Amino acid sequence: MSGGYRRSDGDPAALRELAGRLWSWSSRWHPGELTWLCAEHPDARLAHWRHAGRVVAWAWARGTRLDLQLDPAHRGLLDELLAWSGAGTVRVLDAETWLVDELLARGLQRRDDGPFFVHLRRPLDDLPPATPLPAGYALRPADAAARAAVHSAAFSTTMSEAAYREVMRGPAYRAELDALIVGPDGSPAAAALAWLDGRSGVAVLEPVGVHPEHRRRGLATAAALAVLRAARELGARDARVCARGDDGYPAPRAAYEALGFRAYARNLRLVRP
């Protein structure tokens, strides 16, 4: 490969390495959440690029969609990332203005129709007090079977116990930041998982979910607050979460805003004409 760049396939650790080095509030990716997303989408195609031994870019392709991160000092690699993926749609953060400009200059066009996600943040020094759980509900230490079950039900997907065990074995996972709420009959009702980046002091919520049979009881708020408090005790100063920003599914964003989160950026969809 020209220019001293070397491409390799796979390796989520390379994604986390670059995300941690480039993290700022103008970055789309937090290193912790990449652990979760790679586990949630094991069928995605991954590649990363190194220069002088350091990760400078990665690309993550699912079908015709591309997500990426690129060190702006190596923006000349963008054409190779696009060619590798063959994707017709690229998703970026609007705060990554230089990357948006580079993609527009290559003929991609912004599309604002359809769902999109907003990024919300809040400091952790003034978290609201805990509210009592409904009668019969209780916080429990997370276990893989229960966490996989509540996630599958909450998001209408399929996550196996084995897949969640892999998440728990990951280097960024901390059991203190994994909250499980069970119902009166002991069945998994809600859960929240946070990922703490010690370098930046930012914790990201990914994911927070409630079993459909246990919704509208304040369980998502209770689970999220539990892990945010735990993250603060571990040294986190701020938190970030993503939620749908369009009107098609407004409830999660409203719940996070009620917790004091405020939107500061949104994802953009850029497509080849």
Rank of each mutant, 00 (worst) to 15 (best):
D67I: 00
D67F: 04
L68A: 08
D43V: 12
P42G: 08
R62M: 15
V55N: 06
D71R: 06
A47F: 15
A57Y: 10
H41C: 01
W58Q: 14
G76L: 07
T64C: 11
L70V: 11
P72R: 00
R50C: 05
W49C: 02
R65H: 14
A57P: 05
W49E: 03
P42T: 11
H51C: 13
G53V: 07
H41G: 00
W58M: 05
G76A: 12
Q69L: 14
L78V: 10
V56P: 00
A44E: 03
R45D: 08
D43T: 02
G76M: 05
R50M: 07
V56R: 00
G76S: 11
R45N: 05
D71K: 01
H48W: 15
W60S: 01
T64V: 13
L78M: 04
R75K: 02
H74V: 10
R54N: 10
W60M: 04
A61G: 05
R54M: 08
L77I: 06
R75A: 12
L70S: 05
R50T: 10
L46W: 15
G76Y: 06
D43N: 07
D71I: 03
A47H: 11
H51W: 14
A57W: 12
L66Y: 12
A52W: 07
W49A: 03
A73W: 01
R45F: 10
L46M: 15
P72I: 03
H74N: 04
A73F: 04
L70G: 03
D43E: 10
R62T: 15
L78E: 09
L66E: 07
R75V: 12
A57N: 13
H48S: 09
V55K: 03
V56W: 00
D67C: 02
P42M: 11
W58V: 02
G63L: 11
G76T: 05
G76I: 01
R50E: 12
V55Y: 04
W49H: 00
W49N: 01
R45S: 04
L46R: 14
W58I: 00
W49V: 05
L77E: 04
R75C: 06
A61H: 04
A47S: 15
G53D: 14
L78I: 07
G63T: 04
R62S: 14
P42Y: 08
R65L: 15
W49I: 01
A61R: 07
L46Q: 14
L46G: 11
L77D: 00
L78F: 07
V56Q: 01
R54L: 09
R62Y: 15
L68M: 08
V55M: 06
L78Q: 02
P42C: 12
G63V: 13
R45M: 09
A57D: 11
R65G: 06
W60G: 01
R45G: 02
P72S: 06
L70Y: 03
R54Y: 04
W60F: 13
A57H: 06
W49Y: 06
R65D: 14
L77C: 09
Q69Y: 10
H48E: 06
L68S: 05
A52E: 13
P72L: 11
A47D: 11
H51Y: 14
L46C: 15
A73M: 09
V55I: 13
L77V: 05
H48T: 09
H41F: 12
R45A: 10
A44W: 08
G76R: 06
R65P: 01
A47R: 12
Q69R: 12
